[in-house]
Amino acid sequence: MRRIWMAVTAVFFALPSAAAELGDDGLHKTDWMRDTFKDLREDLGEANAEGKRLALFMEQRGCIYCTKMHKEVYPREDVSSYIRENFFVVQLNLHGDTEVTDFDGEVLTEKAAARKWGLLFTPSILFMPEEVDEDQSAQSAAVAVMPGAFGAGTTLDMFTWVNEKLYSLDSEEDFQRYHARRIQERQNGSTD
């Protein structure tokens, strides 16, 4: 009976939920992305008020890797529900002209912010701590950066690793070790 339940659960979690639609800016839109004024200090405050972590998604129109993530990874119920429940996601456009207020107070366009933060590829996700000094940029404050497209397991592990604050200096398990352990647990069927 336990095997049947595990098989049903595995199929359920592998099923994609509603796929993201393209916005007017050519970027994929999900129901868990927030439409904000892109003042990162305010966004961090809102995330904290909701008990969530702030994540900045840098994407671009026509990005095949962004499309892959939005069609194959984010629609999975286990991934999308984890992000929705634990993260406050703000999407930014690598070539966009919308103004962003960085944590250090600098107001610049999305594309200038991408250059300032050294983001060259999409998708890139910057994971923010719960508190940021007023002299820090998003890039210098980030506790982790996820550069590129990954499979569902790696993506979910990264979001979980950040959410559980395993990046702290007190943690003995860096992301690679954490991810390797989670892969082994999934292979053994011993994940929750």
Rank of each mutant, 00 (worst) to 15 (best):
E99N: 00
E99M: 04
E99V: 00
V100A: 00
V100L: 07
V100M: 05
T101A: 08
T101K: 08
D102W: 02
D102R: 06
D102T: 03
F103K: 00
D104T: 06
D104R: 02
D104K: 00
D104F: 01
G105I: 04
V107C: 02
V107T: 13
L108R: 15
L108C: 13
T109A: 06
E110I: 03
E110F: 09
K111H: 13
A113R: 05
A113Y: 11
A113F: 15
A114N: 06
A114Y: 12
R115N: 10
W117L: 07
W117F: 13
W117M: 09
G118T: 13
L120W: 09
F121W: 11
F121N: 09
T122G: 14
T122W: 04
T122F: 11
P123L: 13
S124Y: 11
S124V: 10
S124C: 10
I125A: 03
I125F: 10
I125N: 04
I125V: 15
I125S: 01
I125H: 09
L126E: 12
L126H: 11
L126F: 15
F127R: 00
M128G: 08
M128I: 12
E130F: 11
E130K: 14
D133S: 15
D133H: 15
E134A: 09
E134Q: 09
E134R: 11
D135I: 02
D135C: 08
D135S: 14
D135Q: 05
Q136H: 10
Q136G: 00
S137K: 06
S137E: 06
S137N: 02
A138Y: 03
S140L: 10
A141Q: 03
A142Y: 09
A142L: 07
A142K: 14
V143E: 05
A144F: 15
M146G: 03
M146Y: 12
P147M: 12
P147A: 14
G148F: 11
G148H: 09
A149K: 00
A149S: 13
A152R: 03
G153A: 08
T154S: 01
T154P: 00
T154E: 12
T154V: 06
T155Q: 05
T155A: 06
L156D: 03
L156W: 07
D157Q: 03
D157W: 08
M158L: 12
F159E: 03
F159D: 08
F159N: 04
T160I: 03
T160H: 10
T160W: 06
T160F: 02
T160A: 11
T160E: 06
